[in-house]
Design a protein around this nucleic acid. Structure first.
Lengths: 115, 115
DNA sequence: ATAAAACTTAGCAAATTGACTAACTATCTT
DNA sequence: AAGATAGTTAGTCAATTTGCTAAGTTTTAT
C-alpha cells in the first residue's frame, strides 16, 4: 500500500510538468526516439533527457537502446494508477454531493427524520 | 489553453504529495476545519497550512474563516481537469493498442495489405 | 580511418519545496 | 480581564527540481 503510494507520488509529479505531458501525448501516437521527441522542445538534450528519465522512473514509459539511438514508448499501464486514484476520489465526492442533495430535499419536504 | 495547462501543473503537483492526497480523501467524506485535518498529521501547523494553501491555489479545495477557525471543503470540480486529461490520454493509448492488435492480427492472417 | 550522429556523464547554478521554530493576532471562554 | 484556542507571519534551512555547458562514449556513415 505504501509502495503503491510512492508510485503515485512519482506519477503525479511526472504529470505536473508540461514538457513531460507533451512527451506522453506524443508517445500516445506511437513510439519515438529521444531525438525525435527532443526536436519539438527548445531545451538542451541533457535537460530533455532528465524528463525522459523521470517518466521512466515513474513507470510511465519504457525505453531501450538500439545501436546509438534510444527508443521510447508508453508503458501499458503507466497512467492507470493515477486514473484509478482520481476515479475513486471522484466517486466519493459524487456520493457526498448526493447525500447533501437528499438532506436538502428532506428539509424541503419536511421529512427530516434523520438528523 | 496555456492558462488551462498552468492549472494542470498545479493540480498534478498538488496530487504528488501523500499528505495532500490524504487531505483530499478526508475532505471527500465532508468538510472539516484546519485543526481537525491537521490532527491526523505529525507536522507543525505552519507546515501543514502550506499544504492547505497549495490545494487551494490549485483550485482543489475552498476554505473560509468563521471566527477563529478556518473551514475547508472540496471544490466541486477540483479534480475534474486532471481526470479529463488522464481519460483522454487513456483513450488515445487504447486506440494505439487496438491499432497494434489489428496489425498483429493481419500479420498472423497473412492479410497485411496496409504496411 | 575519420567524421558525424545520438546520446551520456559530470558539474554547476537558480528556483522551488517541505519542514521547522519563534513570535504574533485574532476570537472565544471563564 | 485573563487565559486558552486556532490560525498567521516571518525567517531559516536542507533537499529537490530544472535548466545549462563542456567534455565524453559508442555507433554508423563516408
Amino acid at each position: 500500500m505504501t509502495k503503491y503510494d510512492v508510485n503515485l507520488n512519482l506519477i503525479f509529479a511526472a504529470l505536473s510538468d508540461e514538457t513531460r505531458r507533451a512527451i506522453l501525448v506524443r508517445l500516445s501516437r506511437g513510439p519515438a526516439t529521444v531525438g525525435e521527441l527532443a526536436s519539438h522542445h527548445e531545451m538542451a538534450l541533457p535537460s530533455f533527457m532528465g524528463h525522459i528519465t523521470k517518466l521512466e522512473a515513474a513507470g510511465m514509459i519504457e525505453t531501450a537502446k538500439k545501436g546509438r539511438t534510444r527508443y521510447c514508448r508508453l508503458s501499458p499501464d503507466g497512467i492507470a494508477p493515477a486514473q484509478h486514484w482520481l476515479d475513486q476520489q471522484a466517486d466519493q465526492w459524487v456520493k457526498r454531493l448526493d447525500q447533501f442533495d437528499e438532506y436538502a430535499l428532506s428539509l424541503l419536504k419536511g421529512k427530516n427524520d434523520e438528523p
